[in-house]
């Protein structure tokens, strides 16, 4: 089973990332320039020591993953490679998990590259201010968070892609789903204060670690549920007739 997942994953990464796929070499560079150099340096050495730029990385997995995962099934259907793939011995799970893992790994991998680049860039830019880096705990949290977020994006994307007739349509539906997901964060601050439930008064009373753990577990559960739903919706006959 693991061998089969690896076979699928390998082909996805090879097709998308290495040989003439959707992501040109230039787009990697743009991501790295923006998220690895420009945004972190804006925060200054102190900002980095406080872990401020890590907040930017919340978006990154969604940006990175959605392009690849939207294409996963819809793209193969559009380019007429899906039925041939389904006519092989590869088990359903291997095809599904291979594709989800490929997108998740790509998203997390790029975040890691950007993080490392930003540390290197900061130490070059802020020479003489001692070693500049993120708080270790925040860094670890950000990485786990990115992995979970990439998993979330992959899970949503694969569900959309299983049914979408074209990669383009999958991409559009995916964008709407992500906007819907983030909508509360934009709307809540705009609401009149009275409408919101009271927040514990002193900020010190808030246990950041506990909140992050709760959010993380929530994401994990959501990821698992999405993958299980995708597993249920993966039907060869349905995929061919759609």
């Amino acid at each position: 089973m693991l061998v089969d997942i690896w076979t699928m994953l390998r082909k996805e990464l090879n097709e998308y990332l290495i040989q003439g796929g959707v992501r040109s070499k230039r787009s990697y560079l743009i991501y790295i320039l923006i998220f690895g150099i420009f945004l972190p340096l804006q925060s200054g050495a102190e900002g980095i020591r406080n872990g401020l730029p890590l907040l930017f990385f919340a978006w990154l997995p969604f940006l990175l993953v959605s392009g690849i995962i939207a294409d996963s099934f819809a793209g193969e259907r559009e380019r007429h490679t899906l039925e041939t793939l389904l006519a092989t011995r590869l088990p359903d799970q291997a095809i599904l998990f291979g594709k989800i893992l490929a997108a998740t790994l790509y998203g997390t991998g790029m975040v890691l590259v950007c993080l490392i680049t930003s540390i290197v860039a900061a130490n070059v830019a802020f020479r003489g201010e001692g070693f500049v880096s993120y708080p270790p705990l925040a860094l670890a949290g950000a990485l786990v968070g990115c992995l979970l977020a990439a998993g979330l994006a992959s899970g949503i994307g694969v569900l959309v892609s299983l049914r979408a007739p074209t990669a383009r349509q999958a991409q559009q539906t995916m964008s709407i789903a992500i906007i819907a997901l983030f909508l509360p964060f934009y709307i809540l601050p705009l609401l009149p204060p009275g409408l919101l439930p009271p927040i514990p008064v002193e900020p010190e009373a808030i246990n950041i670690v506990a909140i992050l753990l709760a959010v993380g577990s929530g994401l994990l559960v959501l990821d698992i549920v999405l993958i299980l739903v995708a597993r249920l919706r993966f039907k060869r006959e349905q995929l061919i007739l759609d």
């Binding site: 089969d4 076979t7 390998r10 082909k11 090879n14 097709e15 040989q19 003439g20 796929g21 380019r79 007429h80 490679t81 039925e83 041939t84 793939l85 006519a87 092989t88 011995r89 590869l90």
Partner: peptide, 24 residues
Amino acid sequence: ALLEHNGLYERLNAEDNLDFYGRI
């Protein structure tokens, strides 16, 4: 199987297409 459509990955080269199916 060679079905209605050739099912080849256009963005992979000839050898990698075969290699993928060999791995499968």
